[in-house]
Design a protein around this nucleic acid. Structure first.
Lengths: 270, 270
DNA sequence: TCATACCGACCAACCGTCGGTTTTTAAGGT
DNA sequence: ACCTTAAAAACCGACGGTTGGTCGGTATGA
């Protein structure tokens, strides 16, 4: 590398930044990055943006993360780690297979309700165009954790004769896939809730969940009404929890992909 | 950037490149891009790569496509356009709802078998890390086309009393989601086939398809064995069609994400 | 005093633009 | 018919500005 070699000799004079413990800085950077991804999306957020938001230099950042991608991995890991704790206790519930199944569903629903804002991030942001990569990873990580649990539950029910299932793995996978499609419905519901139409949104969601429950009944070989995905009115409060926690609306990033405007302004007034 | 600033005055002397009709060049570029994406993945392919592969200049490229993203859109459009023609005829089949359903499934299976190489592209490439964006688009476009058809078929069967279905849309969505999960299985099967273990791969696939069929039976409220996803041995020949058409193995792009090696070589010897 | 958190100037590479050139097509004049 | 002229479209490749990532070096807590 042969460039002007003497400009580097200038001495750093304004290092007023504090020195933090490793995990502190990491999570601080993670928080900053997550906030930015929420507002703008993966591609539209540059490393420089994260640097500014976190208040750290480039060198500092690359001391903790090896690449922009690494940021995503860490984000996913943090999320799934937290999510696992939420539903881990439901594994050793009591009762027969069906009761345990319903308990598990209820636990994950409850966890979802309690983590509204965070969920909104992975619900709202991941689905906006340009974030498919993150979404896929989150999804894969999530499935990797929940699929074995679900399959275990179903297999157990099949062994005890409570369920009538030809292939537990396939059924578990299908149920999970069902939830995958639900995201779109949830997204629409959140949107409607934001627009003030909570009742209609809750009703629609409730209908979908009821439909799903009946499908799962069939998949498990149970009479209709066995599986209960939600008590009445449960989704209303869940929607309320997920819906925008602050009064301010998001900036509505109008640039899902890379900005092709090199003119002067690069970012809309947030 | 201070390099020789007057180099522009040199006159282009070697314009030996032929001039092609609009659609010709477009599809030529598309072919080149597709081949590269197959080999390396979305992020690892630069515009310059496509330029070189297609034998066209940057200006020429941007005369036909507005951005790299546009390339993907065009690719998706071209694919779905071709795919639609393949199964369009199956819509007006004869017989009762179940027979029509089976015909539809059979038609799409047949189409899949006939377009092995192309399918392999969307199967093999889209699933490699870093291609989630394309995969999501392909998937969305595909669903947008096939979901209404499937739902129509199911609704019709529900009206005629042939099917027992609470929510046709939900069931259609679930069946489609089933196919989504199947991709992973197919991928594994293709891999096994490449490794020479065609029999085992076909057997595994056959088992999965049988399981799926029984699930769909339940979803549609039919007795077991009604839905037929494949005649015996059908998957063997399909696998054979999909499996690598050429004897040479792909370069196995070792850099799914951006290459952080600025040393000297940027691309491994292909 | 030694590891490590941290800094910021720098670099290569990339995408997309721009002024310009060449070829084709269309129009008009004779 | 033929030539001339003009507009349109295909095509070129050097350049600008931005981005992700590197590197030598500094500061600080244990």
């Amino acid at each position: 590398m042969d460039h002007d070699g003497d400009s580097r000799t200038q001495i750093n004079l304004q290092s007023k930044r504090v020195r933090l413990a490793r995990d502190m800085r990491r999570s601080q950077i993670l928080d900053a990055a997550q906030a930015l991804f929420v507002a703008r999306g993966w591609d539209a957020v540059t490393i420089a943006d994260v640097l500014a938001e976190a208040g750290i230099s480039k060198g500092g950042f690359y001391h903790h993360f090896s690449a922009k991608e690494d940021l995503l991995d860490a984000l996913v890991e943090r999320f799934t780690e937290r999510a696992m704790d939420g539903t881990a206790g439901a594994r050793e519930a009591e009762g027969d297979a069906l009761a345990r199944f319903n308990t598990f569903v209820d636990a994950s629903n409850r966890w979802r309700a309690e983590h509204g804002p965070e969920l909104r991030f992975f619900l709202d942001v991941m689905l906006q165009p340009g974030n498919e990569t993150q979404f896929a990873r989150i999804n894969a990580a999530s499935a990797e954790v929940t699929l074995p649990v679900l399959r275990g539950l179903i297999e157990e029910g099949a062994c005890s004769g409570r369920f009538d299932v030809p292939d537990a793995g396939l059924v578990a996978e299908t149920i999970l896939a069902l939830g995958h499609g639900r995201r779109a419905a949830l997204r629409a519901a959140v949107k409607a809730t934001d627009a003030g139409d909570l009742d209609a949104a809750a009703l629609t969601l409730e209908a979908r969940m009821a439909g799903e429950a009946r499908l799962i009944d069939r998949l498990l070989g149970l009479p209709p009404g066995s599986v209960v995905l939600s008590e009445a009115g449960k989704h209303r409060e869940m929607l309320a929890a997920i819906a925008a926690p602050c009064g301010d609306r998001r900036p509505r990033a109008p640039k899902p992909t890379r900005t092709p405007k090199p003119g002067s302004e690069r970012r809309p007034p947030c």
